[in-house]
Amino acid sequence: MSGVNLLELRNVSKTFVSGFLFFRRKVVAVDKVSFSIPGEKPTAFVLAGESGSGKSTIARIILRFIKPDEGEVLYRGRNILALNSKELLLYRREVQAVFQDPYSAFNPVYPVDHILSITARRMGVAQGKEVDEVIDEALVSVGLRPEEVRGKYPYQLSGGQRQRVLLARALIPRPKLIVADEPVSMLDASLRAEILNLMLDLKAKHGVSFLYITHDLSTASYVGDCIAVLYKGSLVEMGPIDDVISSPYHPYTQLLMSSIPVPDPSRRWQERVTAPEVSAARGPVSGCKFYDRCPLRKEECRRAPPTLKKIGNRYVACYLY
């Protein structure tokens, strides 16, 4: 396995078209994005960005819900759109997903066991009596007592319990990678900490890698090993998370970092922000997408979009470097 990436995106792009006839508008949701999650050891790779940056579109492409217009997604070196049926089943087993809303993922008329046993059977993990064992084992590994959860309906569980059950579901096929799209943003602080700890434990004990998609850099820095920062569909910076967070290179990453409220009243924001806010309707830009908000912009930034350059152990797309 050494050397082959677990997951790799190569120049992936996706454009959505909205409107009709003369009002057609193209929205480039993902713009030539490349990154890879290494295969050697379990890694939590963070995909960070604000709303509309394309992070969930990337998740949907990886999960094969939608097809990219350009580029390819490789899983262990194989294009996920060119898998044969056997490989596809393996891919569906090894790459699992957990989403933001632990309320809407359940069918309310079935007890929560349903989603677990369906997964175990359809994925060919277990049959007959083994199914129960597999379910109990998965529930225990996410810190739930099977007797407290099994037979319960979704409305009888708390948000944190539901998100745990969904993580247990994702664990049943023994995945190598879990795509977690904002898995804690709807949970309260106390439950959030538990789910984040669980992700750390699953990585350490079960060897599961995570693609953690979030807008929240404080939770990202807690669970992540590497980070890729997206801005309007393009990667602006990528590297080991501690380095990126302690000294962000790209002006957007810098703005993002300085905007995170520090939970400490003795470390309040001192300087004022004057980042111009632009209206939602905007024309096309030819150069850097961050140009109109960038405090360090130069004339050359308008000409062509900057490409990712390697600086030390990270990548930055900015003319400053």
Binding site: A189, S190, L191, R192, A193, E194, L196, N197, L217, S218, T219, S221, Y222, D242, I245, S246, M257, I260, V262, P263, D264
Partner: peptide
């Protein structure tokens, strides 16, 4: 509640 807030750059285990 205060101990369960993640802080950027801190890896100390959160309590919950």
């Amino acid at each position: 509640l205060i101990a369960s807030i993640p802080r950027v750059g801190e890896k100390r285990r959160l309590a919950g």
